[in-house]
Simulated scan of single mutants.
Amino acid sequence: MNMVKVFIKGQEDKELSSFLRYYPTRIKNVGIDALFDRQTIFDFKDGCNQPQVAQFVAKELVRKFGRKIGKVVFSCVPASSQERNEERNKAFSALVCKLSGAIDGFSHVKVSGERSAVHGTKMKKEVRAKRLEESNTIEVDASFFRNKIVCVWDDVVTTGTSFCAYTAQLERVGAHVTNGIFLGKTSYRYVPTY
């Protein structure tokens, strides 16, 4: 898979990359390549292809960190609730770490409360305002993350808000977040890749 460079304002000191371009379902005039990438992302969210994605992520981690991989913590941006976080990230994080040799940070992050998921939905202004009022609390184990090199994973990056908020929280407790890896980077203008 070719990696797509990701730019998030304020995160220029980090290497950010994505495996796929994600075109939301409202973008209709796309080719078979974009439809395949979109389905790959949907399958990941449904837990159908996590072993294959874990292999790609592990390979990218080893490429980036080499022999230092055993000192790197792999941590997923938490999902919207603890239940969703466990469904989507627990086994995936464990498999990525088993394949790469990275340290699994999953059990050192807890989510309490719940907020609505946003991917795949076209939100009206009133729905978006309601979502901003909802909240969940993400608790990170400060003693675990302090002075650790951390790679942050998220399935889809659109504006980078979730990545930035989670990275800032990790860095406040003393972690050194060096990079972010995403399965998909949201794009709105289709460019064929074949």
Rank of each mutant, 00 (worst) to 15 (best):
N2Y: 12
V4G: 05
V4L: 11
V4Y: 12
K5E: 11
F7Y: 15
I8K: 00
K9C: 10
Q11K: 11
E12A: 02
E12Q: 11
K14L: 11
K14T: 06
L16Y: 08
F19V: 09
R21S: 13
T25Y: 04
R26A: 15
I27N: 11
K28L: 10
G31C: 04
D33T: 14
A34M: 07
D37T: 00
R38T: 03
D43H: 06
F44W: 10
D46Y: 03
Q52T: 06
Q52E: 11
V53Q: 00
Q55V: 13
V57C: 02
V62G: 07
V62Q: 12
R63L: 09
F65N: 12
K68T: 11
G70C: 13
V73T: 11
C76D: 03
C76P: 03
P78F: 04
Q82M: 10
R84N: 05
N85Q: 04
N85F: 04
N89H: 02
N89G: 01
A91M: 14
L95G: 09
L99Q: 07
S100C: 10
G101N: 09
G101R: 07
G101S: 10
A102R: 02
I103E: 08
G105D: 03
F106L: 01
V109G: 01
K110Q: 12
K110Y: 03
E114H: 00
V118W: 13
H119K: 10
G120T: 08
M123K: 14
E126S: 10
V127I: 08
V127Q: 15
R131G: 10
R131Y: 02
L132V: 00
I138T: 07
I138M: 00
I138Q: 01
F144N: 14
N147A: 15
K148V: 02
K148I: 06
V150W: 13
W153G: 08
V157K: 03
T161D: 04
T161H: 04
T161E: 05
T161A: 07
F163E: 06
C164H: 01
T167Y: 00
A168T: 15
L170A: 06
L170Q: 09
G174I: 14
A175W: 03
A175G: 06
H176S: 08
T178P: 02
N179F: 01
G180L: 07
I181P: 01
F182H: 08
G184F: 02
K185A: 06
K185Q: 09
K185D: 07
R189V: 12
Y190A: 01
P192C: 10
